[in-house]
Design a protein around this nucleic acid. Structure first.
Lengths: 231, 231
DNA sequence: ACAAAAGTGTTTTCGGTACACCCATGT
DNA sequence: ACATGGGTGTACCGAAAACACTTTTGT
């Protein structure tokens, strides 16, 4: 059998990407969801998604879809998992790869997002979404919690410069529990993966809090020592 | 735009599943690999794989492919990730979902596997495989190590009844480091997820070692208590 | 009797957790 | 002067790690 005929008899499928886009704002984790403006399911709430084209990888498709809605590129994205049930999409048999993205909410293009019917919703505000999108979100949250514990991905959600209080409140929001201020500072500073800046942020206190910046080089040094980032 | 035309202009793709099948035998982790008997790439080493059909989910496709080669069903399988680069498959644009499976090596249908050109290879014997299959294996190993630490999946690789020495040697093989005998016994027995049988296994010592069996109910009880399985 | 693997406790060490007060500054 | 969030050190506890000898039994 030739290679051509080997592939010729095989059925082909629509392959979608759906993006669970996390942001962190006003001390709350938020998700970017859209109210669809087009059929099918116009008016329904949904994740941001699209179809994989001929000339792009699935990862590229997810990045394209994200940029299309937020104007952002070069964003932390990771595969969540494949949703491949035959009847998961009411309109056609569509195999969907879900990706989750962590963005700095203040850096995205708000007008562009609005044009696409996108809204930032807090976790407790999430409505019923089309298809299996609620399940995708639940899986993404679990994944975010698992990954944030052992990988320095929380920084992707904060502004480039941030205070330790902001960082702590982010982890408190992710884990839904309060963290001891002194223990948190001790732990994160001991990891030595951030650069302490001279600058202070005075927006939330009179005294002002030092700003820090995640330092990828320091993180690599930590890894080379065989140590594991853990919050 | 109608729903039909919405889907009609979208390109479709070949979607494959590739299975990284782990077994444990003679104290060694092994992988089931095949020497392809059909074009393209006949004679080359490869993972066990196949294409997703119209009427099956991706998970079902992976289970079908596994059963086709090993005769086993109802096996622990989990999605690894999607490999979706445009040119990853030399023959055509194929998006592949990789799954990893843990099987009891002695329960599979050896003659059937041989008919398909399948061989069990130890990790250090793995040759260069087609496409990105070596990368898939590397990713699967990482995933196996991560998951085995916090989920009771090691038992999927052992016979139903096993000794504590077998269990320990499995974890030593997975983590590639020796584990203290007393500490290991203390830890695993404290979790209370196994049933101790009266029977003894005398194949590897004169004295004989007690056999144990994983008890899913006990494991659920552990989870209900909010405790985490950890080795 | 001896070889070969099974089985068993205690001590030390280290990291995690709990916890309360002073500091700097804008108003 | 006081209110507000920023910043700091120590004591305790429990889990993990290190460690060596006795038991059983087939040959």
């Amino acid at each position: 059998m030739s290679a051509a005929s080997f592939y010729a008899k095989v059925p082909k499928h629509l392959v979608a990407v759906d993006c669970i886009i996390f942001g962190f704002d006003e001390g709350r984790l938020k998700l970017l969801l859209i109210q669809r403006k087009v059929a099918p399911m116009a008016g329904e709430w949904s994740l941001v998604g699209g179809f994989v084209q001929e000339a792009e990888s699935t990862d590229e498709a997810a990045a394209r879809v994200l940029e299309h809605t937020t104007g952002l590129n070069n964003i932390y994205m990771d595969q969540l998992r494949c949703y491949g049930d035959v009847a998961r999409d009411a309109g056609a048999r569509v195999i969907s790869m879900a990706y989750y993205a962590l963005i700095r909410i203040n850096e995205h293009d708000r007008p562009l997002a609005q044009e696409h019917g996108a809204h930032w919703l807090e976790l407790h505000e999430i409505p019923t979404l089309i298809f299996d999108h609620n399940r995708m979100i639940a899986d993404a949250l679990k994944q975010l919690r698992n990954n944030a514990q052992f990988h320095p991905i929380g920084f992707e959600l904060l502004p480039e410069k941030f205070t330790l209080s902001q960082l702590r409140s982010l982890y408190e929001e992710i884990y839904q529990k309060t963290l001891d201020k002194r223990n948190f500072r001790k732990k994160i500073l001991a990891l030595d993966v951030m650069e302490k800046l001279e600058e202070k942020d005075k927006t939330s206190s009179k005294k002002g809090a030092h700003l820090y910046r995640f330092d990828a080089q320091k993180y690599e040094a930590l890894q080379r020592k065989g140590l594991v980032f853990e919050i």
